[in-house]
Design a protein around this nucleic acid. Structure first.
Lengths: 192, 192
DNA sequence: CAGGATGTCTAGCACCGCTAGGATGTCGAT
DNA sequence: ATCGACATCCTAGCGGTGCTAGACATCCTG
């Protein structure tokens, strides 16, 4: 009897994740405007109301996708930082990885940082994945830099601006490296 | 006979602008998600199809609002730059004015830089108002700085990132000044 | 095997952007 | 002054959206 309940919960959790990945795939293939509850339901081979038994609404689905994204972004940034040959190169590597993430998964990135959300950065309810990503930037600055969190914030904001303006075609995408170089050179902390 | 036509065209132009300002006011009061063609039509006291005799669709209305915004932003940046006591303060003043614009007119700012658009920055069909705004940033760097356009792009992107992330509540809004200070200090061109 | 809880679907609500086609009014020529 | 042509504007409706109430089926429990 308990085994049955467990099986059901397992199936339910599977379907929960199925909805999230289906939404993500659909968004990455055709953009978020193509992600409608009807198409999503059809894709997971259930009717619309099933979606609402898992999520409070479409926003919640987008949020779930974005939280998955936060985890992947943090992992990618971490990998880049650790792979940097020397500490001085870490910031550049992490920044490059960030921009790569944004350009390679534009829809996922949009869900994370552009679409309306109630997820905060520096807050008690901040998802740990997001905090982890932020910390990768912080770690690129010297521990004795009292303002390293501020540095990280500004770097992150600048990268976000670059990512989103080039994604929407507002600035040309072919000079990304020069912008990255300027940003990193200017904002790396100066060894005391 | 020609006078009548002229009067009609005048009235038509008036109504054209009326639609734009109504859309803008509605967006600034309740956000863009509240700007529907029905509500907008009601507000200008015409039926929906009238909107479509002036604009090809809702997107075109948003674009018209944003172009108005580009003009105002450029003027505001120019004022700030010229009011700076000395050239070294110009960049800081312009950046501050930019962030002020974004925080005081969030909906207008969204139409200009966040909502999907076909307006490009560096392009032949770039609206002159937008180019003028960009040039205000360029003018904050020394003419002999060969990369001043790149500097302007990066500054702009960073400001945009800060503006949009704090508007959506993703970074706290109460430490804007510190970010601004860091950014300006690091990216001002170094006198040779 | 009956009863109740659980899960799922069909059908529909109010809203969206957008448009076809008819009613209304105005203009210029006869 | 009247009539036809034209421009203007609105009503009504299309297919779509997010979301939900209520009927239906299915399964576990006593």
């Amino acid at each position: 009897m308990s085994a049955i309940k467990e099986r059901r919960e397992r199936e339910r959790a599977q379907r929960h994740q199925l909805i999230i990945t289906a939404a993500r795939e659909l968004a990455e293939a055709e953009g978020w405007e193509a992600v409608t509850t009807r198409r999503l339901a059809e894709r997971v081979e259930y009717s619309q109301p099933v979606l609402y038994s898992h999520f409070s609404g479409k926003d919640a689905i987008v949020r779930a996708v974005s939280i998955d994204g936060f985890g992947e972004l943090a992992a990618q940034l971490r990998r880049a930082r650790l792979a940097a040959p020397e500490p001085g190169q870490a910031l550049r590597a992490v920044c490059r990885a960030y921009l790569e993430f944004a350009t390679e998964r534009p829809a996922l990135y949009q869900a994370m940082f552009v679409m309306p959300t109630d997820v905060k950065f520096a807050h008690a309810e901040t998802p740990p994945q997001l905090r982890a990503g932020f910390d990768e930037f912080v770690s690129c600055f010297r521990p004795d830099n009292a303002r390293r969190e501020l540095f990280a914030e500004v770097i992150w904001s600048a990268l976000h601006g670059i990512a989103v303006l080039s994604d929407s075609g507002r600035i040309p995408a072919d000079t990304q490296d020069e912008r990255l170089d300027l940003l990193v050179t200017r904002l790396a902390d100066t060894p005391s």
